[in-house]
Each structure stands twice: as structure tokens, then as C-alpha cells.
Design a protein around this nucleic acid. Structure first.
Length: 254
DNA sequence: ATGGCTTCATAGTGAAGA
């Protein structure tokens, strides 16, 4: 079973890239973030024409998440009972027996912004939800744009990023608290190239210089993580014309 | 370089992203 995540930075702008990618890799699940479209303008016909189901939770201009799946998703939720958030950042469903939690974690903006405590609180609530609910599912995957680089090795230039949002100690602790419930970062279960990133700034030729961050993650609960065969970042779509600033990440499970 | 692109929005003195 192939499970992938991709922050597409506008699904309507990136539709051709996404459809081409689905056709190339045929993932069982693609979790999408930053669809940036209301549900009434979601490009459902084009996704279905590519052979996929779609469930989505969008809003005007910002945020928005979706699950594109080969098999019909079941028990879909777009809000956690302990997290009432008008921003559309969460979608959870069961696909082929795997509980999938798709997250678009708040960016946080800067350490002195109001958006920073919102991010930390949001992550704490996700952790509490998982603590209460993860035992209900034998196979559990949390994936998406976490907007946190877990360690310095996930940062192109840790010195330059010091004191910045995405790498701060409280954010990393919030992610670690989720992992400590019993989730594994699939990418780090395998030997990987050094300087492996999933996001590169549009400016400064950042992609060409590989000045990026690894902030798009696939976590699996421990027993299911043992079934993980591979986890890769696909840099190819980042080379296309008008790319998303994020690359897709995909894990394969048996 | 004190945000240098890109998106969606509106027609701003943008706002937000990461």
C-alpha cells in the first residue's frame, strides 16, 4: 500500500502536476494540503477521471486539505472533538483498513506572533486526540505538512534558521510528544541521502542550491511502521514549470 | 537583503506562506 503526502500550494493551479503524479505512481492514498479552494470549486471531476475518490475540507484562499484515494474512504472527519478550528487543516478517514490523519499544521509565522501559540496549542490538541483514539486502530498513519523540521539534519543551514519558526525547541517538543505516543517517522527508518528536504523557498534559487527543510512527514504507529518498505521524497515535480514549493513524500507498506 | 517568489485576493498602505 502506497501512502503519500503533498502540499500542493493551490490544487487548482497544480492540478495537472497532481494528476500526472497520481498516474505515474498510482498511490493508494494521496493526502493533499493547501488546496486553497472552497468545496464547491474543488476539481472533483478531474480527480475522478484519474481514477481516484476525493474527500475534501476547504475554505476560500487559504488552507484546505483533501484525501485522494483508490478505495472509498470511510468514517471521514474534518474536525477533532477537542479542536474547534475554522481553519480547514484536518481530515481523517479510514482507507483500506488504515486510519489516515492528514494534517496541515499551522506555520506559526514567527516566535513572537499570536500564530505561534496557536500552532503549539493546535499540536497539543492533536496529540491529546491521538492519545485518546490511537488504540482504536491497528494501523495508523499521520501525515502532512507539519511545518516543523524535526532535527537539525532536516535543515539546510541550522545556524541561519536558529530562532526561527519551524525549527524552535517548543515546536520540536510538540512533534516529539506525538511521536512518543508510539509513532515513527518513516523517512528516518531508512538510510537516506544527506540534505534530504521536502520544501524549498521559491526565492534565491533555493531548490537549485538545495537550500530546504524537511517538514513534510509520514508517521506510522510502531506496529504498522514495521511493515514500511520504503519512504522517499520525490524531487521531480519541484523541477516542473510553476511547481509547488513542496515535494511529495511517499511511503510503501506491506 | 530589513522576505529577494507565489498564491489568492482585490485594485491596498496587500496578506500569508515557510
Amino acid at each position: 500500500m502506497k501512502i503519500a503526502t503533498w502540499n500542493v500550494n493551490s490544487l487548482r493551479v497544480r492540478l495537472e502536476h497532481v494528476v500526472d503524479w497520481l498516474k505515474k505512481y498510482q498511490p493508494d492514498v494521496l493526502a493533499v494540503q493547501e488546496t486553497k479552494t472552497e468545496d464547491k470549486t474543488f476539481p472533483l471531476d478531474e480527480i475522478e477521471a484519474a481514477g481516484y475518490n476525493a474527500v475534501f475540507s476547504g475554505q476560500k484562499s487559504y488552507n484546505g486539505v483533501a484525501l485522494l484515494t483508490r478505495k472509498e474512504p470511510q468514517d471521514v472527519i474534518t474536525d477533532l472533538p477537542n479542536l474547534q478550528d475554522p481553519q480547514r487543516r484536518i481530515m481523517e478517514a479510514t482507507v483500506d483498513g488504515v486510519r489516515i490523519l492528514n494534517l496541515y499544521v499551522p506555520n506559526g509565522s514567527s516566535l513572537d506572533s499570536d500564530k505561534y501559540p496557536y500552532k503549539l496549542d493546535w499540536l497539543a490538541r492533536v496529540k491529546d486526540y491521538l492519545n485518546d483514539n490511537m488504540a482504536k486502530h491497528e494501523r495508523y498513519v499521520i501525515l502532512g505538512d507539519f511545518n516543523i523540521a524535526p532535527e537539525d539534519r532536516d535543515v539546510c543551514d541550522p545556524k541561519a534558521w536558529e530562532g526561527n519558526v519551524l525549527v524552535s525547541a517548543p515546536e520540536r517538543a510538540a512533534l516529539a510528544a506525538i511521536e512518543e505516543l508510539g509513532f515513527v517517522d518513516c523517512f528516518r527508518s531508512f538510510e537516506q541521502d544527506e540534505k534530504a528536504y521536502s520544501w524549498w523557498n521559491y526565492r534565491q534559487l533555493a531548490f537549485r542550491r538545495n537550500r530546504g527543510l524537511r517538514i513534510d512527514l509520514i508517521l506510522a504507529n510502531k506496529s504498522f511502521a514495521a511493515n514500511c518498505q520504503s519512504c522517499i521524497i520525490d524531487r521531480e515535480p519541484r523541477k516542473l514549470e510553476r511547481p509547488s514549493d513542496h515535494a511529495p513524500v511517499m511511503a510503501e507498506f506491506n
